[in-house]
Amino acid sequence: MAKVKSLADLKKMKEKLQSDISLRENSKHPEGMVRVKVAMATCGIASGAKDVMEFFTVNLQKRNVDAIVTQTGCMGYCYAEPTVEVKLPGQEPVVYGFVDIKKADEIIEKYIKQGEPVDGIIPVNYETIDKK
């Protein structure tokens, strides 16, 4: 990886990274991918997030879903750990709470594969700095 030598370098890098992400996640183009983020802070891991993440990684591939599964930090919903955010291409992300293996399976089969809503969505209850 090249070093960031100037502010211009950084900006260029940012634009490239952002457009990659956008291409991957937002277009309805066949290249668009499902993105699954598992909250993997200490609290999530303690509630079983590692197993859930592994389940998503293994099963999405097995079931031929073009998806990226990544970890992220704490989303703040301690009462509902493990929590998982799922973003279908071109759609707003949704967050599921109390995700165990069974729930994860349901999310893959119903929501990801068929776009059918699944119970257990935690409504967004905050604003981001960009919206404010």
């Binding site: 983020k37 703040g76 967004v124 209850n125 905050y126 604003e127 700095i129």
Partner: peptide, 17 residues
């Protein structure tokens, strides 16, 4: 009904740390 704004936590739960 939205009372929260994520400033310090702006990236927590969004990006891969």
């Amino acid at each position: 009904n939205i009372k929260q704004i994520r400033v310090a936590l702006r990236n927590c739960g969004f990006i891969n740390p």
